[in-house]
Design a protein around this nucleic acid. Structure first.
Length: 261
DNA sequence: AGGACGCCCTGTTCGC
DNA sequence: TGCGAACAGGGCGTCC
């Protein structure tokens, strides 16, 4: 689930429920999710401290312990963040459980263990090292156009390339292209200026509306592609049967009528 | 440079 | 219905 809108929902949740509380226990259920740290290292840094603030960049959630220590969380293809109250059962696939002194716990959930957690010292420096592009919601039209310039390859793989723009994955790339009326395989460098602008101007409202819907497909408008991406379903705009094509090794859902190649 | 592929994992869905 | 195959909202490395 975790693309930009999902991670923004997690960020807001952490920000609203997990800041300024004393951390009592840190339990690592599966250390394969740890990157460049250990259960001991994690405990040493977090125990008896509290979280101060949060930042989201693309699909990454960063939580500050102090200016020089940030917990960086990534979720892979499946993941979630939940608050557990008191003695409630911890959710399945909880890989990290952080317990606060008020009895609440923050659970980092990663069913397929494709997520990763690490410590970083400087968000700015780290984002640069990771070569992540600007966050999709913090990107100007001019820079968007600029980044598209001279790129070869399909528009969908360009949108999903985190070094170009951070935050867009398979689902929202499809959603944005659907609303912009662009075929996922269309070459980026063949998009005319107007179409490229339309793509930019579609990206932000789609991501923002998805956040408003709490990144929950059930709360998204039925005019969206997202609730319809399965075999035999019809385009919510024109009724044509939806089609799929492989792009960057992932399945792209699109409407052959509304998004001609 | 960018596409195709395999891989890391495990739970769910698909198709015979 | 049952079972193995294919697939799933990410990203990395390798080969071409």
């Amino acid at each position: 689930m975790p693309e930009l809108p999902d991670v923004e929902v997690y960020r807001r949740h952490v920000s609203a429920t997990a800041l300024h509380k004393r951390i009592e226990h840190v339990h690592v259920e599966d250390d394969s999710i740890l990157h460049d740290t250990s259960p001991q290292g994690l405990g040493r840094v977090l125990r008896h401290k509290s979280f101060r603030s949060t930042i989201r960049h693309g699909k990454h959630l960063l939580v500050a312990v102090n200016e020089k220590k940030w917990l960086a969380m990534h979720f892979g293809m499946t993941g979630d963040i939940k608050t557990i109250h008191q003695r409630e059962d911890t959710p399945d696939h909880t890989r990290l459980l952080i317990s606060f002194d008020n009895g609440d716990h923050l659970a980092y959930i990663s069913p397929r263990k494709l997520g990763q957690i690490s410590f970083i010292e400087s968000p700015d420096k780290w984002l640069q090292q990771q070569q992540l592009g600007p966050d999709a919601l913090a990107l100007s039209e001019a820079e968007f156009m600029n980044r598209a310039k001279g790129r070869r390859g399909s528009v969908k793989s360009w949108l999903m390339n985190q070094k170009m723009i951070a935050g867009i994955g398979n689902i929202y790339a499809d959603e944005i292209l659907f609303h912009a009326g662009i075929h996922p395989r269309h070459a980026v460098n063949h998009l005319d200026r107007e179409t490229c602008k339309r793509l930019y101007q579609t990206m932000r409202p789609v991501l923002e509306a998805a956040i408003e819907a709490h990144a929950d497909p059930g709360q998204m408008p039925s005019t969206w592609l997202l609730p319809h991406r399965s075999k035999g379903e019809n385009c919510p705009a024109c009724g044509a049967t939806l089609a799929t094509v492989k792009v960057s090794g992932r399945t792209a859902w699109y409407c052959p009528q509304c998004q001609p190649s």
